[in-house]
Every structure is written in C-alpha cells, then in structure tokens.
Amino acid sequence: MHKKLEARNVNVFYDQTHVIKDVNLAVEQHSVTAFIGPSGCGKSTFLRLYNRMNDLIEGFRKEGEILIDGRDIYQRDLRVEDLRKKVGMVFQKPNPFPKSIYENVIYGLKIRGVNNKNLLDETVERCLRQAALWDEVKDNLRKSALALSGGQQQRLCIARAIATEPSVLLMDEPASALDPISTSKVEELIYELKSQFTIIIVTHNMQQAGRVSDKTAFFYLGELVECDSTKKIFTNPTDSRTQDYITGRFG
C-alpha cells in the first residue's frame, strides 16, 4: 500500500503548551482514517497540520515532518495555495459562499482562472453527482446555496472541496451539525469517495468512526495512543485507555 501521508516525530506547541507529543502516523492512499479522542486531545490540531491551517495561529510551532507523497509540506519552497489544491477540507458547520450552487462548486476553479464553460458545467455535474446531491439540485443550480438544507449545504461543501481534484480530503466533524438522515448521507458519501481520495475524518461520534473508517487513531492528551484497523480498535483495542474511551468510561 502506498503511504499517502506520513507524520514523523511530530510535536506541536502553542507558545509553551505542548499539544501534540511525538506523533508518528502513516496513512494509506485511498483509505478513510478516523481521528477520535476527547475534546482538547489534539486531533483537530493534528488534522490541520496536513493543510497548514495552524500556521497563522499565534504561538504555533511545529517540530518533525509531515509528508504528502513523500514530500515535506512544510518546506519553504512549497506554496500553501498549491498544497491546498491537493488537500481539500470540509468543516464542522456547512460554510457555502453566499452565491449560487453552481458558483460554489466552481469557485476553486474560477480563482485558478478556468473559464471554459463546458469544463465548468462538466465539473459541476460530476462533483454534485459524487457528492450525492445532483438529483436534488440539478434543476436549481442557479439558486442560492444558502437556501439549501443543512445536510445539502454540507454535501455542497464536499462537492466544492473535490472540484479542484484534491487527492486528500480532511473532514473536521463533517456531520456533527446535521440531522440523522443527512448524517447517514454524508457517511455513505465518505464511503463512496474513498476510492478516489485519501480521507481523514475527525469525529466525536464513535459509531461514525466505526461505520466509515478503515483505520482509527485514538488521541489522548496530545499523544497518539493507538492507531489500528477500525475493526481491531472497536473489538479488541491494545491499549486500556482506548478501551476505556470507546466504551464511554471516560472522555
């Protein structure tokens, strides 16, 4: 299996606070990896390392290497804009732009100067289909994205994230603000998308981690306690802290 993402001896500090402690983690291509752990354990911070979203936080300091396809993404000559074309992100709350559905999907391509109408039309249809939203919105592509339901907005954000053809998708609690039906649609979508993308999902919902991921990484107090196949983690975890967390004994 190709190691798509690799973290080597990663430590992160916010000023004097040591928030990620010597984490080593490899993520295989075309897999879904779930990050779980109690609030404040560092899982979102760790996720945001992969697209350098922490860089502008005051006091942020990182040690160690984060590699994508074998290349350190914190090298000076790497442009963050280029990195983010390869690494898409979906956030906890749907955040469509106050524009039409169509314009939301093509936003990333537009700012890169793509103007070919046929290409844009094709991209909109392909991405909305991949995001399992096409059938619901195909007759209203010029409608404001803000008029969609929460679940539809989140799937639109996923369509927008994949329109620039990234190879990695980061999802920070993508279904926590959604109702159960929308949650299940987004989960099914994640399952479908893994054939084309390498996906990392941060979730507080352990059942969700079980349903969607191939591997699960458990973080606790900034440490990566255990990372293994999701089946192993949910049936017979190695570390007693993982067991205590997934069985609800703490956190």
Partner: peptide, 9 residues
C-alpha cells in the same frame, strides 16, 4: 458478526 455489531450498531 461481532465486527458488524461493533462497527455499525
């Protein structure tokens, strides 16, 4: 069966 119960509730 165990995996299905553990992962998919």
């Amino acid at each position: 069966c165990e995996n299905t119960i553990a992962l998919f509730n």
